[in-house]
């Protein structure tokens, strides 16, 4: 059975989005199964039309920073991060789980969530997934 790594994504920054994308797609290439559990602000990364901003930059530059990073990453060959995530999800090696309780807490509706995400799950379901694997908090 393939190795599984479970990730908790709790922030909505561009950095967290990029880390999720890089680790999930590389895991797919390495036949490592990745479960991502999105909770609190991390849920924003799963909502339609959301554009993550760079947390580590001064406030007026956060949005522009993401555009600059995207441009630079395109030059490295990372041209379509969302498309890469879709491929890894379609290959079955990357799964994106919204956390149900924090969705309710943050008033994020099921229809706001992107189509490639799994059905929302709760803490017990995520911990059950993690029982025999590793957990990484992003």
């Amino acid at each position: 059975m393939a190795e599984t790594i479970n990730y908790i994504v709790k922030d909505k920054s561009f950095e967290k989005f990029a880390m999720m994308m890089l680790l999930g797609t590389t895991g797919d290439a390495m036949d490592i199964h990745s479960n991502f559990f999105f909770t609190f602000w991390g849920l924003n990364l799963l909502t339609k039309k959301f554009k993550p901003k760079v947390a580590g930059m001064p406030t007026p530059m956060k949005g522009m920073g993401a555009k600059i990073f995207r441009k630079r990453m395109a030059k490295f060959g990372i041209e379509d991060p969302m498309g890469m995530i879709k491929d890894a999800v379609e290959n079955g090696n990357m799964k994106l789980f919204p956390c149900q309780m924090t969705m309710d807490l943050m008033k994020i509706k099921a229809e706001d969530i992107i189509d490639i995400a799994e059905e929302p799950v709760g803490a017990a379901t995520f911990l059950e997934m993690c029982a025999d694997g590793k957990i990484v908090s992003l």
């Binding site: 890089l22 797609t25 590389t26 290439a29 390495m30 030059k75 490295f76 060959g77 990372i78 890469m84």
Partner: peptide
């Protein structure tokens, strides 16, 4: 030739091939 590409693209492209 993956010159110019950075992590993780050489890995992803190699796997695809």
């Amino acid at each position: 030739d993956y010159s110019g590409l950075k992590c993780p693209m050489p890995v992803l492209k190699t796997k695809k091939e």
